[in-house]
Design a protein around this nucleic acid. Structure first.
Length: 594
RNA sequence: GCAUUCGUAGCUCAAUUGGAUAGAGCACCUGACUACGGAUCAGGAGGUUUGGGGUUCGAAUCCCUACGAGUGCACCA
C-alpha cells in the first residue's frame, strides 16, 4: 500500500468531480510539525484554474476526501494549505507491508547499467582527505544506484604513468639505496610519497641556486638538471627501456599494495581497473575520425582543434603539433573504451569541480562526434575539503593523509566509546573491540563527509568529525545498537516480531515513525536521481532521532497491553532494518552492540 | 579580464526544487537517571538568508546589480 500514491489519485479525482477540471501532477509535501496532519497539499496554484480562493478549494477537497477516501481521517485548512491526517488502519497496513517485505527500499530492476568511475589516484603519493571524499561519494553513489535497480560497474582509472611518477622514480634511484616497504616499515604508497617529497626538495634547491645565479625563475624550473633528468626518464619509459620499466613496475606495485590496504579498510572496491599506461595512447583514431567528419580542424603547424564557441566554450586543442596526445585525447579514447567494454547506458565520473570545464568540453566533443551515449554522461562534481586553517596545501605540509586520519578517527572512537560504553563491551574480545572501533571511527568519518551536498565546498573539522553526539554517524549507529538490545530482550520474553500487527490505533509519535519509514523508498529514488548520498544521511538522522523520541515517550518492553507491545517491537525492528539499509547505502556498518 | 560555483544562527550544515512563523547539530544556559542501553530526551537563547533592486498570491531558492570567497581559462594531467 502506497499512501502517498493513493492520496494523489484521490485528490485528482476530487478535483475532477468537484470542478470538472483535470490537473497535472499532484505534489504533496510533509506537513510542518506545528500543524496537524502528515501530508500537505498546496492549493494556491489551483486558484486560477478553479476560480476560487485557496482556502475554499482546500475546504472542498478536504471534505470530499474525508467523505470518499477510506484513508483520510481528518483535514484542516490554513490559508492555501490543506493538511491531511491519515487513518491509523492505513498506517498499520503500511507497517505490516514493510515488516514482511525483505526487499523494502530496493527498487525494481531497471535493466539498465551505469558505470561509476571514481577514486582514480595518481601513483606517486598516498591518498589524502580529498580522495576520501571522492571515494566515499563514488562508493555510496554506486550503492544507491544499485538500490535503484541499476546494474552498476564501479571503475577506477589509475594514473600510473607520467612526469609525477618519474619524479618519485628518479628520487628513489638517487637516494633509495635499495629501500623497500619492508625495510622501511612503511606502506608502499607512503614510501613512494616520501621520495616524491625528496625530489621536490632537491628540485627546489636547484631552482633557488639557479635563480641566485641570475636565471629567471620560469626558465630555471625548466632547465634544472633534475627536471631534465625526469624528462629523459619519461622518454626512456615511453621507449620501453627495460631498466626504467622495471623500476617503474616495482615502485608502482608497492603503491598498489598500499592502496589496496587502504581500500580494504574503508570498504571500497572496484569491478574494473584501468591503467593509464595502457590507455594513454588511445584517442588518436578518434582525432582522425573527427577530422574526416569535419568536427575538428587542423592548423598549419598540424595541431588539431575543435571550435566549441557555439556551445559557449572555447577552441580546444585535441592533438599536439608533434602528433602526441593531450589529456582530452586520452579521455575521448577511454570513454569510448569503457563503452566498448561494458555498453553502459550511462557513465558517471566522480571528479573534483576543478575539472568542470574539462568535462563540459569532453561531453560537447562526444556529442559533436555523434556518439550514441553522448547524452548519458554525467560529471558528479564535488567541492574541495578545507581545513579550519584554510586550504590543504601539499607545499605547506598541511595535507591530511588518509591512513593517518582513519587511524586517528578510530583511536578517538575507541577512547570515547570505551568510556561511554560503561561496561557494555566487557564480554568483547580485543579483536571484537578493535573491529567495533573501526566501525565507529569510519562511520563517523564517512557520515561527516557524506552528509554535505557534494557540490559544496566543505570544511573538515577534526574534532567534529569524531564526535559521537548530535547529527553524526555514531549517533545513528547507537540507535541501531539500542534497538537490537531491545529485540534481544524481546526474544527472551518470547514476543514474536514476525506475525502481523493487530493494533487498531497508534500514538502520534508511532504514526510519525511509520510515516517516515514509508518515505524511505522515495528517498532512495531521489538520492539516485540527484546522486546525493546526503539525502540518505539526512533521512537516517531524522529516523534515528524520531525513534529516540518515541523510545523516550513510550515504553516498549514494559508495555502491559500485548497488542501494543507487539506493535512497538515490530516498529522498532523495521526502524532498525531501515537504519541499517540507509547507512549501508553510505557504506557505513551499524553494530548490534556498542 | 572572461567563464563558472558558492555566500543561510558565533561555528558546521539543512530547507522535499517557488510554499506556511527559514530548520538541525556543535558551543552556551536550564531541566529529566532505583535506566526497555542517559552514547538519551525535554526546554531556552541565537536570523534583515552578504547588500540593493526586480518577477508573483508567495523568493534563501528565479532574473538584474554590487560586494566577498573558490575554481577554471596550458601544445600539464
Amino acid at each position: 500500500m502506497d499512501i502517498q500514491e493513493e492520496l494523489k489519485v484521490a485528490i485528482k479525482q476530487a478535483i475532477t468531480e468537484l470542478y470538472q477540471q483535470e490537473i497535472g501532477e499532484v505534489a504533496l509535501q510533509p506537513t510542518k510539525k506545528e500543524f496537524d496532519g502528515l501530508y500537505t497539499f498546496v492549493t494556491f496554484p489551483l486558484t486560477k484554474i478553479l476560480r476560487q480562493n485557496p482556502a475554499q478549494i482546500g475546504q472542498s477537497i478536504g471534505t470530499w476526501l474525508v467523505d470518499n477516501s477510506p484513508i483520510v481521517s481528518q483535514f484542516n485548512v490554513v490559508q492555501g494549505f490543506l493538511n491531511l491526517s491519515i487513518d491509523d488502519s492505513a498506517w498499520i497496513t503500511v507497517m505490516n507491508d514493510m515488516a514482511t517485505d525483505v526487499a523494502f527500499g530496493t527498487l525494481p530492476a531497471k535493466n539498465q547499467s551505469v558505470m561509476v568511475e571514481f577514486s582514480s589516484p595518481n601513483t606517486n603519493k598516498p591518498l589524502h582527505l580529498g580522495h576520501l571524499r571522492n571515494n566515499f561519494l563514488g562508493d555510496s553513489v554506486s550503492r544507491i544506484l544499485a538500490a535503484n535497480g541499476y546494474d552498476v560497474v564501479k571503475a577506477c582509472i589509475v594514473n600510473d604513468r607520467g612526469v609525477h611518477i618519474c619524479k618519485s622514480m628518479l628520487a628513489y634511484k638517487m637516494f633509495g639505496d635499495g629501500e623497500t616497504p619492508e625495510s622501511a616499515g612503511m606502506k608502499g604508497d607512503h614510501l613512494i610519497g616520501k621520495y616524491y617529497v625528496l625530489f621536490d626538495k632537491a628540485y627546489k634547491t636547484q631552482i633557488e641556486e639557479m635563480v641566485a645565479q641570475g636565471t629567471p625563475k620560469e626558465e630555471a624550473e625548466k632547465q634544472a638538471p633534475l627536471m631534465q633528468e625526469v624528462q629523459q626518464m619519461l622518454r626512456l619509459w615511453e621507449q620501453g627501456d627495460a631498466e626504467t620499466v622495471a623500476l617503474w613496475r616495482k615502485l608502482n606495485n608497492w603503491v598498489y599494495e598500499g592502496f589496496d590496504a587502504t581500500y580494504q579498510t574503508i570498504g571500497v572496491s572496484f569491478d574494473k581497473t584501468y591503467y593509464e599506461s595502457n590507455t594513454y595512447i588511445l584517442g588518436k583514431e578518434i582525432v582522425e575520425e573527427g577530422l574526416q567528419k569535419g568536427v575538428f580542424y587542423q592548423k598549419p603547424d598540424s595541431s588539431v582543434w575543435i571550435d566549441l564557441t557555439e556551445e559557449g566554450l572555447d577552441q580546444k586543442l585535441v592533438l599536439r603539433s608533434d602528433g602526441t596526445s593531450v589529456y582530452m585525447t586520452q579521455d575521448l579514447g577511454t570513454t569510448d573504451l569503457k563503452f566498448q567494454d561494458f555498453h553502459n547506458d550511462r557513465q558517471i565520473w566522480v571528479v573534483g569541480n576543478e575539472q568542470d570545464y574539462h568535462f563540459n568540453v569532453l561531453f560537447a566533443i562526444l556529442r559533436r562526434l555523434g556518439r550514441p551515449y553522448a547524452n548519458n554522461l554525467y560529471h558528479l562534481s564535488y567541492g574541495m575539503v578545507d581545513l579550519p586553517t584554510g586550504k590543504m596545501k601539499s607545499r605547506e605540509g598541511t595535507v591530511v593523509d588518509a591512513d593517518d586520519l582513519i587511524q586517528e578517527t578510530t583511536e578517538a572512537a575507541s577512547t570515547a566509546a570505551d568510556e561511554a560504553a560503561k561496561g557494555k563491551l566487557d564480554e568483547f574480545s580485543d579483536a571484537e573491540k578493535a573491529a567495533l572501533f573501526t566501525t565507529l571511527g569510519l562511520g563517523a568519518l564517512k557520515y561527516y563527509l557524506l552528509k554535505v551536498d557534494p557540490q559544496k565546498r566543505m570544511q573538515f573539522n577534526p574534532a567534529e568529525s569524531v564526535d559521537l553526539h548530535g547529527n553524526t554517524g555514531p549517533y545513528i549507529q547507537y540507535v541501531h545498537a539500542r534497538i537490537q538490545s531491545v529485540l534481544r530482550k524481546a526474544v527472551e520474553l518470547n514476543v514474536l516480531t514476525d506475525k502481523p500487527v493487530e493494533a487498531t490505533d497508534l500514538d502520534e509519535i508511532e504514526q510519525q515513525l511509520v510515516f517516515l519509514l514509508s518515505q524511505y523508498p522515495q528517498r532512495v529514488e531521489e538520492a539516485g536521481q540527484d546522486y546525493a548520498p546526503s539525502y540518505l544521511a539526512q533521512y537516517a538522522y531524522e529516523l534515528a532521532k524520531t525513534f529516540n523520541q518515541f523510545y523516550d515517550k513510550l515504553s516498549i518492553l514494559k508495555e502491559v497491553d500485548p497488542v501494543k507491545l507487539h506493535t512497538r517491537l515490530v516498529l522498532a525492528k523495521v526502524v532498525g532494518e531501515t537504519i541499517r539499509k540507509a547507512m549501508g547505502l553510505m557504506g557505513i556498518d551499524v553494530p548490534d552492540k556498542m
